[in-house]
Structure formats: C-alpha cells, structure tokens
Nucleic acid binder design. Structure first.
Lengths: 221, 221
DNA sequence: GTATGATTAAAACAGTTGTTTGAGTTTGTG
DNA sequence: CACAAACTCAAACAACTGTTTTAATCATAC
C-alpha cells in the first residue's frame, strides 16, 4: 500500500513484480496464485497484500511500470515525426513504424525484461477478465487517440472506419506474433533459432503490406 | 465417460457443451467454474464428471465437436482447389481464402454457435494452459501441414521460413480480429454496428496485402 | 539505548475449487 | 411386472484460493 520507502522494501517490491510478470505471462491471471508468486520471489505470502493491496492491484502495477513507458516513447516518436514534417501530413508507414516499431524494440530487449512483458501484453489483449480490459483500455486511450488522429490526417481519402479496422488487424498480428512465437507451437518445428531478432523487420513489412492493400469490396449492402 | 446413449443424456451433454462454450469464451478456462457451467446449463454439478470425466476433457470436447468440422471443411476446400487446377500450382490468394475464409464463414454463423466458438478459439490460441496448447497443436497438425505444403508449392521462389512467418502473422490478425471485436475495446467507440458482416472481406484483403508485401530486408547478419 | 514506524513472518480465516460418493430416479428390455 | 443399466441428485471430500490478523523483526531518528 505504501508509496515507497526504505531500501529494504523496494527490493521486495521489485522481486514480486518480476516474479509476477513472468508467472502471469506463463499461466495467466487466474492461473497464477499468490503463493506461486511469493514463492518464486522468495518473499512472504502477505507481502503482496502489504505492498500492493491486492492481487488485482499487483497485476495493474506489473503493467503500469512498463506500459506507461512504452506509450510515452510511442508518443515521443510521433512528436518527433510531426516536428520534422513541420505541418505536412506524415507518411503512413512512418506512423506505423513509430507505434509498432517502438513496441517491437521493447520486445527485443530480453535481459531488461521487455521481452517477457511484451509477451504478457500480447496475451492480455484477449484476457477474459473485465477489470483487465478496462484497465488496458484506459492505459492506452491517449496513445491510441494520438496515433489514430495522425493516421486520419495522413490518409484523408480513406474512410476512418477502414483505418480503424486496419489498425485493429495490425495490433492483432503483432500481439500474436510476440505472444505466440514460443507459446502455441501451432506451426511446430520450423521456428526455433536465430529468428527472434528478425521478427521486427518481418512483421513490419507484413503490417505495411496489409495497410497498403486495396480496400475490400464493400459487398452487397 | 459414456460414448453416447439414451436421448435423456444427449440433451444433458449438449446443454453442458453449449453452456461451457459460451462461458469459456467469456471467462477463460481457469475463470470458469464447474458450478457456473452446470448452473447455466440447468444440470447437476456431477453431470460434467459423469459425462465427460473431468473439466479438462470437457474443454477438449467443446473444441473437438467444432474444430474437427472446421478443419475438415478447410481440407475439402483445398482438395477442391487442387482438383480444379489439375496439377498446376495454385494461386496463393486462393489458398489463403480456403483456409481463412472457411474460418470467417464459420465465425459469421451467429445462430448456429459458430460465432461464439470462433471467438473462443481466437482467445485460446494464447491460452496459457499447457494441455490446451498441446491439444490444439495436435488438432491442427494435419490441416496446417496440408496448407503449408500448398503454399510452398505455390510460392517456390519464396523461402519457406518467410512463408511460415506470414502464415503466423495472418493467423494472429484473424484470431485477434474475431476474438477482440467486442472484447477488448481498445479502439473504443467507433466499431459498433453494421460491421461484423463485412469483417470477412475487410480482413481478407488485409491478409492478402500482407502476404504479397515485399520481403523484409534480411538486415545485418 | 530507546522509542517509533516500516517491514516481515507464521498462522488462521472463510470461501471456492474440481472431484467422488452413495442413494435415488428414470429408461429400455426381457 | 421385474431386472439392469443409465442417469440424476444432494451431500460431502480434501485441496486450494485471496485476504487478514497478530506478533516478531528491522531500520532509523532522537
């Protein structure tokens, strides 16, 4: 519950956060018990409720400590693009790169924990828990609004609904790509080595291809 | 545990399966209790263990009764394509249409339960439970092998690793698109009405755009 | 050193989990 | 009708859930 205090406790806090991040990623929210987290972190069971208040609040803190950073960096990248363009509309591919490239760079950081977190994030997009969805939506709101506005301006001739859908599809491809590479080995066998580093460039060209694809036939009304 | 028997029990069985399908979709495997399922199905708590053996086996049966059908239809569509081509290599877009279009048509069937199931399936790709992943991988193996082989033959000049990745990305975009339309409202507000019917054509043109995108720069080795 | 507050520790809390039991009811067959 | 199998039911099982409590330990300022 405390904000932050002596060095004694900040160690316990971050040990809990690290263990929780890895375990939530592996087993989901409902599948991860407090006893599992505290055992892996090497702290007492009551420490979670003492430091975070509840399991839900711990979960939110696991996200907040990284997601705030991620979305801030995304917005900074967009700011830089707009400053560079000086009022002129941006290239859609640059916008997409700013949003997804930033995330993919975080996912490539294995030692710092960014990789684990991005896998957790990818899975959490489809988490069934209500409070998780609402929390994520709030945490994303500002960043998504900024990027959608930029895309609307960059593609004035395209219906906004279509841009929304494409953005949605791109989110899905990225989430799944990050969350699923070593999770569900549906395409078993052939993925293994050397690849994670090149995931970013592969995914990015796929996303841009999808973004640039001709709009679908509206079909029979 | 029984294979199938009197009309008394097949009603109980399918009532359980229907309730479980909807609840697993809404709350996930760990988040759905047996008491919740049996209450919604209007049957006794012990009925699940009696008819299916365990919660895990019920979960698998929820998938098997629809997934077997889906993948069989996919393979039939591919068979039809190959018969029509008579030995000539297929157009990649036709292959992709056979795989994803079949799924999207199932997802468009709201009354028959296909919609609910496909949303469940989309979420389950990133389910953290071990037995779920292994079960899905087995259930998909034959179908995925057939379609990958077809894509390899249709795109002989493209490295197989690249095809694998693109297939992976396409799976992600579709899963997320189906599972997430009314789940995580990250792109809140603007999706609502009239759209679900046109999801298929929108997604398909996005997927094909991604599939046709120029290959990524291999980058620094 | 002693007092003060922050942190940790072990134990217990009430509630929920999936599963099993054993008696009851229904169903189909001779 | 009688018999046996299939099925349903309420109750209980032990194990586990997140949380709280109470006492012990630690760090720090006076």
């Amino acid at each position: 519950m405390r904000e932050d205090t002596s060095k004694h406790s900040i160690d316990t806090r971050s040990r809990i956060l690290d263990a929780a991040e890895a375990l939530f990623m592996e087993h989901g929210f409902d599948g991860t018990s407090m006893r599992l987290i505290t055992a892996q972190a090497g702290v007492n069971l009551a420490a979670i409720n003492y430091h975070f208040g509840s399991k839900e609040l711990l979960f939110q803190e696991v996200f907040r400590r990284r997601l705030t950073d991620l979305n801030r960096r995304r917005i900074e990248a967009l700011d830089a693009l707009e400053a560079e363009a000086g009022g002129a509309p941006l290239k859609p591919s640059r916008i997409v790169e700013a949003f997804f490239g930033t995330a993919l760079r975080m996912a490539a950081d294995v030692e710092g924990g960014g990789h684990t977190f991005m896998r957790l994030l990818g899975r959490t997009y489809t988490e069934p828990n209500d409070f998780v969805r609402q929390f994520l939506a709030e945490e994303y709101a500002e960043c998504v609004d900024r990027f959608l506005a930029a895309l609307y301006r960059a593609l004035p001739e395209v219906a906004r609904t279509e841009i929304l859908w494409r953005f949605h599809f791109m989110m899905g491809a990225m989430s799944y790509a990050i969350a699923g590479t070593d999770a569900l080995q549906l395409l078993a066998g052939k993925f293994d080595d050397e690849d994670p580093a090149r995931l970013a460039s592969r995914l990015m060209s796929f996303l841009l291809g999808g973004l640039r694809a001709p709009l679908a036939d509206p079909g029979p009304a």
